[in-house]
């Protein structure tokens, strides 16, 4: 066959455009956002969190009672039109106390989770990725820290520091990242032998780039699970620490301490346990949904 000039003509532009599989170019983060928005449960969780936050801000002013106003005639009364969530042993309005508590508990839960995430992921990632001697030393440090009795550490903090939220964060921050670090390290140990990591290494990517761009996003599943689980644990540890005298001082109360106080009254005045407990559960569910949504949205493989 003879080649003619006509045959060598460039194709009509409209042809390629027609073949494009209609998707505009998007960045990774745009993807994440879109995937997240499409996840109904995650969006529901987000709405719940926003509502809880809004109530934490406005709730204490809605019922007309303050969090510390006592009325002995009205002690241990069940929910009514006057006291929407009932009253506690000193006749204080539980509705106001619950929303006051929300401020403390949400702050403690979320901030602790974030702090644990940062320290734990970085520490565990480095330990797992570099392996060998680095891993050996870093993991022994984790074991040392988790073997020293927490309560002793708390008592010592109590002596040297003023009680308050700052002290709570120091106490929690000192120990809570330890399990996270071990978890991340375990994942990284397994992932770093995967082909794509080898490929990245061959291509000359720096260890930190490999760790942050390639390995950590792939460990997000268990990390987010562990992080959302951290929230109720932190909420209750705060209650325990406050009870010991490290946290917010009475008559201020958090969800955790309201629930702890309520446990004794399980049979006599169940609403004293029910309300703080139900909000802790709700918070947990919401954060879980958001966490799952985030995990799915961040998953590089799920990128479409």
């Amino acid at each position: 066959m003879e080649l003619t000039r006509e045959l060598l003509q460039p194709l009509d532009k409209s042809g390629t455009e027609a073949e494009a599989v209609g998707k505009p170019r998007t960045t990774y983060w745009q993807d994440v956002r879109r995937n997240f928005r499409q996840n109904k449960l995650a969006m529901f969780g987000l709405v719940v969190i926003i509502v809880l936050l809004a109530m934490a801000i406005t709730g204490p002013y809605l019922s007309g009672h303050t969090y510390d106003e006592q009325n002995y005639q009205m002690a241990n009364k069940p929910p009514s039109s006057e006291y929407w969530f009932g009253t506690d042993a000193l006749g204080r309005d539980l509705f106001t106390r619950v929303w006051y508590g929300a401020r403390i508990s949400l702050a403690v839960g979320v901030l602790t989770a974030c702090m644990v995430f940062l320290i734990g992921v970085l520490y565990g990632g480095i330990s797992g990725y570099f392996g060998g001697k680095v891993d050996e030393v870093m993991m022994r440090v984790v074991e040392i820290l988790s073997s020293i009795p927490f309560l002793l550490w708390v008592i010592l903090l109590m002596v040297v520091m003023e009680p308050g939220l700052k002290t709570i964060f120091i106490a929690l921050g000192a120990v809570y990242w330890l399990n996270m670090a071990r978890l991340v390290r375990g994942q990284v140990l397994s992932l770093k032998e995967q082909e794509y990591v080898l490929a990245a290494r061959v291509l000359g990517a720096s260890p930190f780039r490999i760790l942050i761009r390639h390995i950590i996003p792939n460990t997000m599943g268990p990390i987010i699970v562990a992080m959302t689980l951290m929230i109720p644990e932190a909420i209750f540890t705060e209650a325990w620490l406050s009870f010991l005298g490290l946290g917010v001082s009475a008559p201020m109360a958090s969800w955790g301490s309201l629930a702890s106080d309520g446990v004794g009254a399980i049979s006599a005045y169940p609403w004293q346990l029910f309300f703080p407990a139900i909000f802790i559960c709700l918070t947990m569910l919401a954060f879980n949904f958001v966490g799952d949504g985030l995990r799915d949205a961040l998953d590089p493989r799920a990128r479409r």
Binding site: M158, P163, L244, G245, S249, A250, P251
Partner: peptide, 23 residues
């Protein structure tokens, strides 16, 4: 009891006190 006394002093005498608990 400390919470109650705190409130009584505040209401009856106008005195504000803190509550501190220790191990």
């Amino acid at each position: 009891i400390a919470e109650a006394i705190q409130q009584m002093w505040k209401k009856n005498l106008g005195i504000e006190v803190n509550l501190v608990n220790q191990e």
